[in-house]
Measured scan of single mutants.
Amino acid sequence: MALNTPQITPTKKITVRAIGEELPRGDYQRCPQCDMLFSLPEINSHQSAYCPRCQAKIRDGRDWSLTRLAAMAFTMLLLMPFAWGEPLLHIWLLGIRIDANVMQGIWQMTKQGDAITGSMVFFCVIGAPLILVTSIAYLWFGNRLGMNLRPVLLMLERLKEWVMLDIYLVGIGVASIKVQDYAHIQAGVGLFSFVALVILTTVTLSHLNVEELWERFYPQRPATRRDEKLRVCLGCHFTGYPDQRGRCPRCHIPLRLRRRHSLQKCWAALLASIVLLLPANLLPISIIYLNGGRQEDTILSGIMSLASSNIAVAGIVFIASILVPFTKVIVMFTLLLSIHFKCQQGLRTRILLLRMVTWIGRWSMLDLFVISLTMSLINRDQILAFTMGPAAFYFGAAVILTILAVEWLDSRLLWDAHESGNARFDD
């Protein structure tokens, strides 16, 4: 018995066209964080690309023209004298008006014999932002004059995390709450300039795509075929072959399989920071003279006294001054041990922890910024005066060393310790 099946006739004509040209192939790229070699397709503007294995951002879609970056830099340069030299806060102490600005706080630190601690604050609040705007201006002028731009481009990517104007702005709020127990506070004209400078700096850093600047100024022929001998440069993120001198053909720094002496430098910085954190938390970090009496505060006791007036601000200072430094030390110690013992479990967790400490590390400088600003506000000789204690130097040095330890660690070593050939990683 035959089955009668109805015929289905399409209502619209289906047209099949042959592909007349070869589909576009992607360029081969190595991930600078996990060293995976993959094919990167062509990316349009405002599109980002991520590593298929570790999800690290390979290409950032946010990109401004150099002219727009230069305009932002010149605007920031105009704001800087007002943000640093004009009063941020006014207080009335014992019937006398006192003005506080950024430069005055750094000068008070240096004047009291601790120039190293003052230079830490100076670099993060004044030096690094000033280098940022002058570097962008150098790129703008240098591109037109045919100057060598490689050193500036190499420095810009590392400079971003040292620009800490946003953290200093939080420190202004913390210092205001600490001082309000002794005097009446009012915002100064410099505060508005400083807030504007923070906003412009944040926007500029978020749109400063150094890798795209490398592509514009020093374009290189990408690798179009897969080759395990391809290496990625950690300076400019170019994937290719080393030249005859073993250097990256684009930025001219040595092109090595792994960062040289990464573990040794990381261990040295980490152990030194552990040693410095002990006096930083045991010795007094601030000293207040009130009517001839002397009151010393460690980091913890200062947080407890701050909690009596504002528990939320005390929580912020606790996280930045105690929780973050010790968390960074514990995480980095764990990561280094996992590399030495070739741990194969929990790779995803370790990668996330490394990215976390990379982002939060700079916030530990908050305590030094609060001390710097408070020193310029309260300084009335023996009637009422505020000065920093010996722990300030140890704390600042420990924070900087932990930042350097994270920067010096080559994250690809975590993958080397893991089993080879993993296309995915999980716990």
Rank of each mutant, 00 (worst) to 15 (best):
V370F: 10
F74C: 08
L347Q: 14
L290H: 03
G396T: 03
T11Q: 07
I351S: 12
I185K: 01
L323I: 10
P279N: 13
T67Q: 04
E157F: 13
C51Y: 00
L368T: 07
A73H: 12
S364D: 00
R158V: 15
K12R: 07
L213T: 15
D181E: 10
T387L: 12
I98S: 03
M109Q: 06
E21M: 07
Q7E: 10
A196E: 06
Y241L: 14
L197M: 15
I14T: 11
I58R: 07
I14G: 08
G95M: 06
R294S: 04
L276C: 12
K178M: 01
P81K: 12
R294L: 04
D426N: 14
A417M: 10
V16G: 07
L139V: 08
I185C: 03
G235N: 06
T67V: 12
F74Y: 03
F123V: 02
I378Q: 00
R348M: 11
R256V: 13
L377P: 01
R144C: 09
S206V: 13
C343M: 14
I172F: 07
V152Q: 03
P242D: 10
N281C: 10
F369N: 07
W214G: 15
A175E: 02
Y138C: 09
V399S: 12
L94I: 06
I299C: 14
W64E: 03
S372Y: 02
S65A: 04
V170Q: 02
T239H: 08
R216V: 11
Y168W: 10
H207S: 15
L366A: 12
D426M: 08
A314P: 15
Q108R: 07
N148Y: 03
L78C: 07
D426F: 06
R380G: 01
N101A: 03
D381F: 04
I383V: 05
S411C: 08
E161A: 14
E228G: 14
R259K: 09
F333C: 11
T134P: 05
R362E: 05
L263H: 10
M365F: 05
C266A: 11
G246M: 13
L414C: 10
M1E: 00
A272S: 14
Y50C: 06
F318S: 12
S372C: 13
S119Y: 02
E42T: 06
E228R: 14
C248D: 02
D114I: 03
G188C: 09
F341S: 12
A115E: 15
L130M: 13
G292D: 01
L306P: 00
G346N: 13
W162M: 02
N291G: 13
W92I: 03
L145E: 02
V179G: 08
S206D: 08
I131G: 02
V170G: 15
L132F: 13
K342D: 10
F217K: 15
R258G: 07
L93W: 02
S193R: 02
G20E: 06
R17D: 15
G20W: 05
L337A: 12
A391G: 06
R30W: 00
G118F: 01
M155Y: 06
K178R: 01
K328F: 00
L145Y: 09
A398E: 06
F123A: 01
R59N: 09
L377I: 04
Q108V: 09
L283E: 11
C54W: 00
L257K: 12
M109D: 03
W107M: 13
F123M: 03
P81T: 07
M164I: 02
R245T: 10
E296V: 08
K229C: 12
C54I: 00
S45M: 07
A70C: 12
Q29M: 06
E215H: 14
C236M: 00
T9Q: 09
P219L: 12
L276P: 01
L200Q: 15
T117L: 02
A183Q: 00
L336K: 05
V210Y: 15
L263G: 11
D63E: 11
T349L: 14
T75V: 13
L79M: 08
T239G: 11
P10Y: 07
M72D: 04
V121E: 14
K328N: 00
N101M: 01
I303H: 01
L337M: 10
L79F: 13
L69Q: 05
L132G: 07
G361F: 05
G118S: 09
N281V: 09
M155T: 07
S48G: 10
L352S: 12
T334P: 04
M356D: 06
S65D: 05
L409E: 01
F192M: 09
I91P: 01
T67F: 13
P81H: 09
S262R: 04
I8F: 08
W363C: 03
Q104T: 09
D181S: 02
Y182M: 14
I172W: 02
L277E: 09
S301F: 09
F318H: 07
N101H: 05
I287P: 00
F82A: 04
N143D: 15
G421H: 05
A100Q: 02
G20I: 05
R97G: 03
D114G: 04
I311C: 14
G292C: 03
F217E: 05
R247K: 07
I319E: 11
P41E: 07
G389E: 01
I287R: 10
